[in-house]
Design a protein around this nucleic acid. Structure first.
Length: 594
RNA sequence: GGGGGUGUAGCUCAGUUGGUUAGAGCGAUCGCCUGUCACGCGAUAGGUCGAGGGUUCGAGUCCCUUCACUCCCGCCA
């Protein structure tokens, strides 16, 4: 028998009555009746009620003991009378009558209670993360995370993938996010970078002939945090396959995600076969490349209708002349909604920095007409045209936004979400996955007016490689895809460009010379020149998958030891200063701003 | 870098129009209590009202500055 325990705190039941047992765990809660003391003992597995009476020599010491002290209990399992059974507890039919006990770990006065449903500030939770992690909800989230990762590993092995580790100290790359840098002692003045993703390595693994690779890979990006984005590090299910087309990658990922989400959540999947939406369609219909398909509202472009002579809404007409677009959202059967419903949405839009949302409601008084602030600007014909275009009917309302394309997409996408939430159109008990495909290879940087890679410079452009028109780079589409669930981007991936000559051409469009490409991506270019297989892959975000499964909105709720928004670890005091000797070894001197 | 929110006891929070000695619950300490499972009852201790400055006879409350945490924008191939 183990020195510390004969049973775990979830194990004892009626069959064990009469047995002498040993339990070890934390004191979750005490209930002191003066001559009778109840102690709820907790471990990772559950809670067992222990009981001691005044006659016992240990009574007064146990009565004084702090919550969260770790103790070992020697006792006998006893029956509970019918009216004292606790159905909430796995062990609730029995209790342990304490004979003796031993303190294994003392506990000072707690900075935050462990046994409580109260919410605490992030500051205190992160500083005392080890206490926070004892609490039920987050403890279960972390266990869920472990199970999900283990399940995914098994699935990947079953699907024929091999897991490999890739370097953590690697080289800085010019594209993408800001790198975390590590100075090199042996190479003065030079720096390693932590990988933003094992992107180049996984392609090199394919060139090395391993066919199917995966890794639960740590990724490091020095970018500012969000609720769903940890500063510093996060994990991806990184995978790559040789001799595949886009569809082959989709098949693997769909299988994996369907299995995982069915196993770990009670929520239903909206689609077992994930719909594919092109990037341009997503931007038009949803205003974003991460559409929440639980939301039934669809955006329409009605710019043309506002150009008609029988539409006299001059504000929009003027904006359209200077290049703006009009996008709209139809809400079904909202003619009886109170004025405040519409006003709130307009007010909300203004708070989001838009000039507001114009709207009218379609009503029928013998003849159809538009009622509302801008209704009077439309002729019957124009109104019918809008209804035809947007499939709006009598009783529906239409909200309009007008701005430059990028701006109007942004605000109408937010409005789509806001309106759906106000009308409670989103079913929270569903996972709606979709693929967003056909991303453009390049985009224009709005600040510098230069052409940049819009996603990944290593993606394969679509079409016959001989016939790609490099004169119109913005029209080149890539075999580049994202997977989105409930409006959350889970991952992006691509079929890679394994042809060096084509890569040089694409990089030259983005302003890189051949020499620059050779210098920055020497390993990759070299590898692709010695017989590279066609290959492609994807990298779903583990943290976000677990977030969805745990039904959490904040990534720190599924991360064991996260940093705060300023990328500090309050428990470990990271980052921290280093001493002169360390700096000297690294040939580094500090030049801090006052 | 910018915008919003929050900051009062160890923890979670209340604190009215600027007005007496800043309150509650949990926790801590002490006492009572033999069937609780958020046990109950009584008492005690515990406060730089985030910090600094200002207005005022008087500031937790109003004004300015600043710090911390958080949410969002920028950023995130």
């Amino acid at each position: 028998m183990n020195k510390f325990r004969s049973h775990k705190c979830n194990e004892l039941n009626k069959k064990d009555i009469g047995k002498d047992i040993i339990l070890s765990g934390w004191i979750n809660k005490k209930r002191d009746h003066g001559n009778l003391l109840f102690i709820d003992l907790r471990d990772n597995y559950g809670v067992t009620q222990c009981i001691i009476e005044k006659q016992n020599k240990n009574f007064s010491e146990l009565e004084k003991i702090q919550l969260e002290t770790v103790i070992q209990v020697f006792g006998k399992v006893v029956n509970r009378s019918k009216d004292t059974i606790n159905k909430e507890l796995e062990t609730g039919e029995v209790e342990v009558s304490i004979k003796d006990f031993k303190i294994l770990g003392t506990c000072k006065e707690l900075p935050m209670p462990v046994f409580s449903d109260q919410e605490y500030s992030e500051e205190i939770r992160l500083k005392y993360r080890f206490l926070d992690l004892r609490r039920k909800k987050i403890h279960e989230n972390i266990i869920l995370r472990s199970k999900v990762i283990s399940f995914i590993r098994n699935q990947m092995h079953e699907l024929g993938f091999l897991e490999f580790q890739t370097p953590i100290l690697t080289s800085s790359s010019p594209e993408g996010a800001r790198d975390f840098l590590v100075p090199s002692r042996l190479n003065p003045g030079k720096f390693y970078a932590l990988p933003q993703a094992p992107q180049q390595f996984k392609q090199l693994i394919m060139v090395s002939g391993f066919d199917k690779y995966f890794q639960i890979a740590p990724c490091f990006r020095d970018e500012d945090a969000r609720a769903d984005r940890s500063p510093g590090e996060f994990y991806q299910l990184d995978l790559e396959m040789s001799f595949v087309e886009q569809e082959d990658v989709f098949e693997v990922v769909e299988k994996l995600l369907v299995n995982t989400f069915k196993k770990f959540s009670k929520k239903k999947l909206m689609f077992n076969k994930f719909p594919k939406i092109s990037y341009s369609e997503a931007m038009l219909k949803y205003g974003t490349d991460k559409p929440d398909l639980r939301n039934p509202l669809i955006i329409n472009d009605v710019t043309e209708i506002f150009n008609r002579d029988d539409v006299s809404f001059e504000i929009f007409k003027k904006l359209i002349k200077s290049g703006s677009k009009v996008r709209c959202i139809v809400t079904k059967n909202t003619k009886n909604k109170p004025r405040s419903f519409f006003d709130n949405i307009d007010k909300w839009a203004k708070s989001q920095g838009a000039s507001g949302l114009a709207y009218f409601t379609i009503e029928n008084d013998k003849e159809i007409f538009a009622k509302g602030p801008i209704g009077k600007f439309f002729s019957k014909d124009a109104l019918r045209e809008i209804m035809k275009k947007t499939l709006a009917e009598d009783g529906d309302s239409i909200f309009f936004a007008c701005d430059k394309q990028i701006e109007v997409e942004k605000i109408i996408a937010l409005a789509r979400d806001k309106i759906a939430r106000d009308l409670e159109l989103i079913n929270e008990n569903i996972f709606a996955f979709c693929w967003v495909v056909d991303y453009p290879m390049f985009e224009i940087d709005s600040q510098t007016n230069k052409i940049n890679f819009s996603h990944n410079p290593f993606s394969m452009p679509q079409g016959d490689t001989d016939k790609i028109n490099f004169e119109k780079p913005l029209e080149i589409l890539a075999y580049q895809y994202d997977i989105v669930c409930n409006g959350i981007e889970l991952s992006s991936g691509a079929i890679r460009n394994h042809i060096p000559e084509l890569m040089y051409k694409l990089f030259s469009v983005a302003g890189y010379t051949e020499d620059q490409v050779n210098e920055k991506f020497s390993g990759m270019i070299s590898a692709l020149s010695y017989g590279a297989p066609p290959h492609g892959g994807i990298a779903p975000g583990i943290d976000r998958i677990v977030m969805l499964l745990a039904n959490e909105k904040n990534i720190r709720e599924v991360t064991m030891f996260p940093m705060n928004q300023n990328a500090q670890d309050l428990m470990m005091n990271a980052p921290s200063k280093i001493n002169e000797k360390q700096l000297k070894e690294l040939n580094i001197s500090l030049n801090l701003k006052k």
